[in-house]
Computed example of a mutant assay.
Amino acid sequence: MRSGTAMRLPLDRPARSLGSRGRKLGVALALGALLASGTAMTLAAPAVAATGDITCPSTACVQVAPGAGSPVAIAPDNAGSAYLAYSGGDLLKLDLATGTLTTITTGLGNLRGVAVADGSAYLTSFDGRLQQVTLATGSRRTLAAGLPSLFGVTRAGSTTYVTDGNGEIVAVPDGGTARVVATGLGFSYGIAFDKAGLAYTADMMTGRILQTNVTTGATRSLVTQSYEPTSISVGDDGLVYFMVAGEVKRVNPATGVQSHVTNLVGINSFSFSLAASGDAYTTGSGNDGLWRIVGLTAR
């Protein structure tokens, strides 16, 4: 079922906002061009919240960083901080307790995704680069370049996995060469792994939630015809969480059974990042900063 909740693509931090031109996304493959240009997408918003919805602001939806603008990607480190990537090329650290923002580095290009592991941030960009930034110093190095436009990114062991605009998962092992490990996945803005080492992506073109064995390349659909899913996370409960407009849903990968979690009302949320605590972090419309969705996986 299509949610009526409004959705707007995140653009940038306040000082570098690219502005919106209000173009609606026609098909999911066009999203890459929209993201590159900074174009916004908007769907009609409901007038009132229904029972079970999360209204922002509220005790269940707390604004934690009003000055954070609209990062294109968020990576909680599960140690009290979150790292924010912006399309203008900035990487910021947010202290979740105080709301303090610190710039780690700038000039990283047209960023699209961020993952944090072992003292480093791993960042994808629209120009096909995968970069590693040491969080303590801000020093950077390029792990791969010349690839198709890159979007989702995550770490599994000593390998970085990314999704690209060609519908592929690309593996970049530490000290190794980038190689395609799965194809035919459509357009996924994110990627997540479960504890068994299986990867999950959300195809905005066909509405599929996909499970992929990155060793064999074998893929199966857990969900089909879900309207333009824009977010993908795996909770500590082993369930796969994703967003359809402003509706959060989850699916049990073992059974394929999906269920409604909640609608986010009062903010135009494009996607969310799930922390180990079960809280989720998302941005709203315009430059209204970062929001914490409290106890999302417990709902």
Score class of each variant (00 low, 15 high):
residue 185 L to H: 09
residue 186 G to I: 10
residue 187 F to M: 15
residue 187 F to C: 13
residue 188 S to D: 00
residue 188 S to V: 01
residue 188 S to R: 00
residue 190 G to F: 09
residue 192 A to F: 06
residue 193 F to L: 02
residue 193 F to Q: 02
residue 194 D to C: 05
residue 194 D to A: 07
residue 195 K to Y: 00
residue 197 G to I: 02
residue 197 G to E: 05
residue 198 L to I: 02
residue 199 A to E: 05
residue 199 A to Y: 04
residue 200 Y to P: 06
residue 201 T to M: 01
residue 201 T to G: 04
residue 203 D to G: 05
residue 203 D to E: 03
residue 203 D to Y: 01
residue 203 D to H: 01
residue 204 M to V: 15
residue 205 M to T: 12
residue 205 M to G: 01
residue 205 M to P: 00
residue 205 M to D: 12
residue 206 T to S: 14
residue 208 R to H: 09
residue 208 R to V: 02
residue 209 I to W: 05
residue 209 I to A: 12
residue 209 I to P: 05
residue 210 L to W: 06
residue 210 L to K: 14
residue 211 Q to M: 10
residue 212 T to I: 08
residue 212 T to S: 15
residue 213 N to V: 10
residue 213 N to P: 12
residue 214 V to Y: 08
residue 214 V to N: 11
residue 215 T to R: 15
residue 215 T to H: 11
residue 215 T to A: 15
residue 216 T to H: 09
residue 217 G to V: 06
residue 218 A to E: 14
residue 218 A to M: 11
residue 218 A to P: 08
residue 220 R to G: 00
residue 220 R to P: 02
residue 221 S to F: 05
residue 221 S to G: 09
residue 221 S to W: 02
residue 222 L to W: 10
residue 223 V to N: 03
residue 224 T to Y: 05
residue 224 T to Q: 11
residue 224 T to I: 03
residue 225 Q to F: 14
residue 225 Q to R: 15
residue 227 Y to R: 08
residue 228 E to K: 15
residue 229 P to W: 02
residue 229 P to Y: 06
residue 230 T to G: 12
residue 230 T to C: 04
residue 230 T to M: 09
residue 231 S to E: 04
residue 231 S to P: 04
residue 232 I to Y: 11
residue 232 I to G: 05
residue 233 S to F: 01
residue 233 S to K: 07
residue 236 D to C: 04
residue 238 G to K: 14
residue 239 L to P: 02
residue 239 L to I: 00
residue 239 L to C: 04
residue 239 L to R: 13
residue 240 V to M: 11
residue 240 V to Q: 13
residue 240 V to G: 08
residue 241 Y to W: 09
residue 241 Y to V: 03
residue 241 Y to M: 04
residue 241 Y to H: 08
residue 242 F to G: 00
residue 243 M to K: 03
residue 243 M to T: 01
residue 243 M to Q: 10
residue 245 A to Y: 06
residue 246 G to V: 03
residue 246 G to C: 08
residue 246 G to P: 08
residue 247 E to S: 14
residue 247 E to M: 14
residue 248 V to F: 14
residue 249 K to W: 02
residue 249 K to Y: 00
residue 250 R to A: 14
residue 251 V to K: 04
residue 251 V to F: 10
residue 251 V to T: 13
residue 252 N to A: 07
residue 253 P to Q: 11
residue 253 P to E: 13
residue 254 A to T: 13
residue 254 A to H: 12
residue 255 T to Y: 12
residue 255 T to H: 13
residue 255 T to L: 13
residue 256 G to Y: 11
residue 257 V to P: 12
residue 257 V to K: 15
residue 260 H to V: 13
residue 260 H to P: 00
residue 260 H to I: 10
residue 260 H to D: 11
residue 260 H to T: 15
residue 261 V to Y: 07
residue 262 T to V: 11
residue 262 T to H: 08
residue 264 L to D: 04
residue 264 L to R: 03
residue 265 V to D: 06
residue 265 V to F: 10
residue 266 G to S: 09
residue 266 G to Q: 07
residue 267 I to G: 06
residue 267 I to N: 05
residue 269 S to K: 03
residue 270 F to D: 00
residue 270 F to E: 04
residue 271 S to H: 11
residue 271 S to A: 11
residue 271 S to T: 08
residue 272 F to P: 00
residue 272 F to A: 10
residue 274 L to N: 03
residue 274 L to V: 01
residue 274 L to D: 06
residue 275 A to Q: 00
residue 276 A to R: 13
residue 277 S to V: 05
residue 277 S to L: 09
residue 277 S to W: 04
